[in-house]
């Protein structure tokens, strides 16, 4: 039987999208699905060591996520790696443009990855984009 595989592409920096991406990635990873998360654009700065998870809301739901104390997206991404062996790959172009060094990223984030490698990982996978 083929291994079920998904790639989660995260480009948004808004709370609802980061939260939904983290929920999909973490639950998939702990359910036996091979998960690769590709971080690019506005999502990347949240993964600098110690960076705040205080992302702007797109609408009222984003505020409710905070008010009701839903698990924060960074915790869920970390759990996807630690409990489900997901891979989180930061986009090398995004790091270059933003001037972020790879060694300043959280320890659960993997090696900077270019699109050619990511597209190879995404072959035969469902791709979810947030």
């Amino acid at each position: 039987m083929a291994v079920e595989k998904i790639c989660v592409v995260v480009v948004s920096g808004t709370r609802e999208r980061l939260q939904m991406a983290a929920m999909v990635a973490s639950v998939a990873a702990v359910s036996g699905i091979e998960v690769t998360i590709f971080l690019s654009m506005n999502s990347v700065p949240y993964f600098i060591k110690g960076a705040s998870t205080d992302a702007p809301s797109e609408g009222s739901f984003g505020d409710l996520i905070v008010k009701k104390k839903a698990p924060d997206f960074k915790t869920l991404f970390r759990q996807a790696v630690e409990l489900g062996d997901a891979k989180i790959l930061p986009c090398s172009m995004a790091l270059d443009i933003a001037g972020i060094e790879a060694d300043t990223l959280e320890p659960f984030v993997g090696e900077p990855t270019g699109l050619a490698s990511f597209l190879d990982a995404a072959r035969d996978a469902q791709v979810w984009t947030f």
Binding site: M23, S26, V27, K68, A70, P71, L76, Q79, L83
Partner: peptide, 17 residues
Amino acid sequence: RGSFCPGPLMELIGVLK
């Protein structure tokens, strides 16, 4: 208690391991 999906599931998995 006090957490929302998937918080309780992830807590369960952490303890299961």
